[in-house]
C-alpha cells in the first residue's frame, strides 16, 4: 500500500487544496498512491470527517499534524486527544524533546520532515543541539525540496541510522503524490499507520522527474 504521508489542505494557512479535489485528481490522473495523510500546519484538524469521501474514491484518508520545533518541522502521526493536551500544537518554538516524549507517552510517532532544509530541517540544528533522542524516522523524499535538500536528508539518515519516508508536502491539488511511502500491508486507519511505522518496514518513494 502506498500513502503520501505529507499533504496540506485549505485548513493550513498556505494550503490551497480542497480534499475532494485531491481525491478526484488521484483517480482521474491515476496517481500511483492508495491514500494520503493530511498534516496541517501547527494544528490537528479534529473536526473534518473524510470517511465518506474515502469510501467514494476508495482511498485511505488519514489525519496527522506538522508541528514546529527547535530542530525544524516535525510530522506527528497518531494524534489523540491526550496528545493534543500534552503540548501546544500552535507553538512555533516547541522543544523536540517534549514532542518526542509526548509521542512516546501517547502512542504517536514523530518524524522530522524535510530535514535537509535550511532552518526548518533537522540537519541544520544537529550541530548546535546534538543528535536528538527518540527519533527513528525522518522524511527523505519531500515533494517541495529544492537543490540538494533531499540528498542532505538521505545522507543524514544514512549516517544516523534513520529510516526514511516520503511525502509530497502538497499545498495544491496537482502536487499530491510526488513522493510517498510504500508499506507491505494494508492500512485503513491511524492506529494501523502508527503500527506500520513502528514496524519499521516501509520504503520511501519519489515520483518527481
Amino acid at each position: 500500500m502506498i500513502l503520501d504521508l505529507h499533504t496540506h489542505s485549505i485548513k493550513s494557512d498556505d494550503g490551497r487544496a480542497k480534499v475532494p479535489n485531491y481525491c478526484q485528481w488521484i483517480r482521474a490522473r491515476e496517481i500511483p498512491i492508495d491514500g494520503f495523510v493530511l498534516t496541517e500546519h501547527r494544528q490537528f484538524d479534529a473536526e473534518s470527517d473524510y470517511s465518506s469521501l474515502a469510501a467514494k474514491f476508495d482511498l485511505c484518508i488519514l489525519k496527522a499534524s506538522e508541528v514546529e520545533t527547535e530542530y525544524g518541522h516535525v510530522l506527528v502521526f497518531g494524534v489523540t486527544d491526550a496528545l493534543l493536551s500534552a503540548f501546544d500544537f500552535g507553538d512555533i518554538h516547541l522543544p523536540l524533546k517534549r514532542v518526542v516524549e509526548a509521542c512516546a507517552a501517547h502512542g504517536a510517532v514523530p518524524v522530522p520532515c524535510h530535514p535537509g532544509r535550511k532552518r526548518v530541517g533537522m540537519q541544520a540544528h544537529v550541530g548546535e543541539f546534538g543528535v536528538p533522542e527518540g527519533i527513528r524516522i525522518v522524511e527523505i523524499y519531500n515533494g517541495g525540496s529544492r537543490d540538494q535538500e533531499d540528498q542532505i536528508a538521505q545522507t543524514m539518515a544514512n549516517e544516523l541510522g534513520y529510516l526514511g519516508i516520503g511525502g509530497s508536502d502538497a499545498h495544491i491539488v496537482s502536487h499530491i503524490g510526488r513522493c510517498a511511502t510504500r508499506f507491505p500491508g494494508p492500512i485503513g486507519n491511524t492506529a494501523e499507520l502508527v503500527e506500520a511505522l513502528r514496524a519499521e518496514d516501509f520504503e520511501a518513494l519519489t515520483f518527481r522527474t
Binding site: 494557512d13 512555533i92 532544509r117 532552518r119 526548518v120
Partner: peptide
Amino acid sequence: YLKTGRSGP
C-alpha cells in the same frame, strides 16, 4: 499568526 520557514521565524 506565527510560523517558521526557510528564512527562520
